[in-house]
Amino acid sequence: MPKFLHTADWQIGKHFGGFEPDDAALLAKARIDGIRVIAELAAAEQVDGVLVAGDVFDAQTVADKTIQQAFRAMELYPGPWLLMPGNHDAGLIESVWTRAQRLGAVPSNAVLCLTATPLLLLDGNVAVLPAPLTQRNTFADLTEWFEDAATESGVIRIGMAHGSVQGILHDGIDSANPIAAGRAASARLDYLALGDWHGTAQIDARTWYSGTHEQDRFRGNEPGNVLIVEVEAGQEPRVRHVRTGRHQWRQLNTRLQVASDIEALEATLETLSTTDVIELTVAGTVDLASHERIQRAVSRAQGRVLALRWDLAGLQLLPSSEDIASLRADGYLADAIDELRIAQTLDGAADDLARDSLILLATTMRSVNTSGAAA
């Protein structure tokens, strides 16, 4: 029984602009490393081909080096790779695909599915019908031609498409690049390999989204998988999930109310590892000493995880008498600290400015006091 690996939405070259530059670079590298994981799996499973259902690249403008790295990462699987354009890397007249060809980056076992033309595999026993996007958005169903595509009796029919199955997916995804529900049945497909939805999802017995191979956003919709598909003409395919994602994206939201909450936050951050991608949001009311303690814990966590973005804007600073005493603030400085503390209760940008000013003032005064003590 022929066996294929179905994957999609690699989006190689994604920038991850919401992260610090060093973290963003590691996240981008993880996506290319994920291709090597897929190649190793494809070789171990002895599949008859890898179906990549669109969005191999994140944009037409990815660097030449990124293109070369993506194709080099496929080396561990010598069988056929069928790569199809999606909305991020549409097969335009001049595109990332034509650039890859000019660079000589495309290996001989990689088939670029740039036109709606049947591709025969396994001595003609399998026909792959691709529906490549030739522009970013289309409002026509590019899978319609599957129904008129003639194949000989007994030939396995596999469709590849990138878009939204109408009336099925949530989050308002029914827009551009539509795919008719029931297309697998109407086009007599034995399997329909889809891309665009970044989570693994079964649409019907013969239609699946593989999802992205490595999670790339804070959304729990079953990302980080590929599908191993065994298919036989006229039979329902056997589909098996295989986890390829190595990184877990987690959102940590904490509101600090008592001292033990800070200890709990520190303990949580200490459990993180290099496989974690973290979005940390901390709110509540703390004194200056506690704020510095939190900042140290976040700094340590930065060195522990793959990537971390944090938001401490929800923290309101309430300097304690010990804080003020340690800063040796009296007279005008004590009044300024009190005014900044009160200003944090205002709405809008004023409270952010007051909080940031308190932090800057405290840092500066501690530095001055330390230098004075050393002298």
Rank of each mutant, 00 (worst) to 15 (best):
S210G: 05
E214Q: 12
G182H: 11
G167V: 10
G182L: 05
L189A: 04
A176S: 15
Y191D: 00
Q215C: 08
T200Y: 01
W197A: 04
D190Q: 10
Q215A: 11
G182P: 14
A185Y: 00
S175N: 07
R183V: 03
A185F: 04
L192I: 08
A193G: 00
A185L: 08
G172R: 15
S175W: 05
G167S: 13
T207D: 06
W197L: 02
W197N: 09
H213Q: 06
I168T: 07
W208D: 02
H170N: 12
S175K: 09
A205D: 03
P178G: 14
Q202I: 00
L189T: 05
A184N: 06
G182F: 08
T200A: 08
S210D: 04
A180T: 15
G195L: 02
T212F: 01
D190F: 04
A184W: 12
A180L: 02
A184S: 14
R183T: 15
D204E: 15
D190T: 12
G211I: 02
L189G: 10
D190V: 04
I203G: 02
T207E: 07
D204K: 12
R206V: 02
D196F: 06
A176M: 08
L192R: 10
A180Y: 07
N177K: 15
S210C: 03
R183G: 08
A185I: 03
S210T: 10
R206D: 02
N177L: 11
H213V: 00
A205E: 11
D216K: 10
R206C: 02
A187F: 04
W208E: 00
L189D: 10
Q166K: 09
A193S: 11
A181I: 01
W197D: 00
A185T: 07
S175C: 07
L169V: 10
R183H: 10
Y209C: 00
I168G: 02
L194N: 06
I168P: 06
L189Q: 09
